[in-house]
């Protein structure tokens, strides 16, 4: 009994000592992961994921509290990048990129109240009080905040029109022969 106790205690103590030394030698400073995740996220702090801004979302991701598919504006690309960084197998096939959207001001309805102008996180809406606002396309992230505050439903998200420059081939329809032969 005594031998068993002593020997195990000594063994445990020795191993513990080794691990303790190793823990000092191989110490990892901080958590670089969160910073890397913040870089992947869009950074528009839109809050659509339900976390306070992109940094909050990154923290949640790093702690495994949120799925990699949390970011609606990021779409598939961001989900894939997050999954790769976190080394998880995420089913990103479900995350279809919603059609790219952009905010548009319907000029006949705009009363120039500047509310949209004030909430836009990327300064994508230009205009001044009592003037018709317009959207700076390159800066709009389609976060939808302007749509929420507009009193006249003048600002609406619209699908981005396809241009010759942005067009590309659709994915080939594969003949998987999934139908029963007649």
């Amino acid at each position: 009994m005594i031998t068993a106790l002593t020997s195990l205690t000594i063994l445990g103590a020795i191993l513990g000592l080794i691990l303790g030394v190793a823990a000092r030698v191989f110490r990892v400073e901080g958590n670089a992961l969160v910073a890397e995740l913040v870089d992947i996220l869009p950074g528009s702090q839109c809050g659509q994921c339900g976390f306070p801004g992109c940094a909050g979302a990154a923290q949640a991701l790093a702690e495994g509290r949120a799925p990699v598919t949390l970011c609606p504006p990021g779409g598939r690309a961001v989900a894939i990048a997050l999954a790769a960084k976190l080394g998880v197998d995420a089913d990103v096939s479900g995350v279809q990129d919603s059609v790219p959207m952009i905010a548009e001001v319907r000029e006949e309805l705009c009363i120039g109240c500047t509310r949209c102008f004030k909430v836009c996180p990327t300064d994508a809406i230009m205009g001044a009080a009592q003037q018709i606002h317009s959207v700076f396309r390159e800066a709009c992230t389609a976060c939808g905040k302007c749509e929420e505050v507009c009193p006249t439903e003048s600002v609406k998200l619209q699908p981005v029109p396809v241009t010759l420059h942005a067009w590309y081939w659709n994915k080939p329809v594969t003949q998987t022969m999934q139908t029963v032969a007649a």
């Binding site: 080794i18 691990l19 190793a22 191989f26 110490r27 990892v28 992961l33």
Partner: peptide, 11 residues
Amino acid sequence: FTEMVIRKVSP
């Protein structure tokens, strides 16, 4: 021990 080493060497 292995875990510590890997965490250090290859996050």
